[in-house]
């Protein structure tokens, strides 16, 4: 039905999408997690309450989340070019993807960590745990399974955004869909790209759910 070249293109596009989503998810987690932790522990009644810090950080995160991805991408073009040397292509797309996912992941992390039972945290305090010990030995392990779900949601979001990034020169499945499916009226390519995206999202979500369930001992 398709000629082999389409399969090759599809394969390349899928790998590019996986690359963009994979790398930006990792960066978003690495950079968003500490922010999420800070948001929780500095909130009122938690282990290191600091009203000012918490308010300002919360505000920054909200601003980050409210900028639409497409605008963010254009707005930081110079920064992207400075950071990775180019503003087009998959590697360049990783920069806005990561930046848009950081505040999102920070918020979902905050929610996950907030669910950790106050009593458990208090027990650790009563045992003489330091703030760092509480974060590393109590908050993160207790919230681990829900953090895996948070990463999953972040990755799923990034799959969607990566298609958008692709549409404006980032490569990947979105790029393929636009260039062939839309601009060259290849409805079949459009369709198969969408199907691959759906399968990808489903797959990521299923794996995430599975791991989270395995990790939970609640």
């Amino acid at each position: 039905m398709f000629n082999p070249m389409i399969w090759t293109m599809l394969k390349t596009a899928l790998l590019e999408t996986l690359y963009m989503v994979g790398v930006s998810t990792v960066f978003a987690v690495v950079l968003g997690l500490p922010l999420g932790i800070l948001l929780v522990i500095t909130s009122e009644g938690h282990i290191k309450p600091n009203k000012w810090f918490n308010t300002i950080l919360g505000w920054i995160v909200n601003v980050g989340r409210s900028v639409p991805f497409i605008i963010l991408m254009v707005a930081i073009i110079n920064f992207t070019r400075w950071l990775v040397g180019t503003s087009i292509g998959t590697t360049a797309a990783i920069v806005p993807l990561t930046i848009s996912a950081i505040p999102f992941f920070a918020r979902v992390t905050e929610q996950s960590l907030r669910e950790v039972d106050k009593g458990i945290i208090e027990a650790a305090q009563a045992m003489g745990a330091t703030t760092m010990q509480i974060i590393i030995k109590v908050l993160l392990p207790e919230a681990f399974s829900s953090l895996v779900l948070a990463m999953t949601i972040t990755a799923v979001n990034l799959i969607g955004y990566s298609a958008m990034a692709g549409a404006i020169g980032g490569g990947g499945l979105g790029d393929l869909a636009i260039r062939y499916g839309y601009q060259r009226f290849r409805g079949d390519i459009m369709l198969i790209t969408v199907i691959v995206l759906v399968i990808l999202v489903q797959g990521v979500q299923t794996i995430g759910n599975f791991i989270a369930r395995r990790l939970s001992h609640k």
């Binding site: 458990i120 208090e122 045992m127 207790e142 681990f144």
Partner: peptide, 16 residues
């Protein structure tokens, strides 16, 4: 605090 043990109504064990 390390010299003072404490137990609770809802146990407060680490579920993980």
């Amino acid at each position: 605090r390390k010299k003072i043990g404490m137990i609770f109504q809802h146990f407060n064990l680490l579920s993980s």
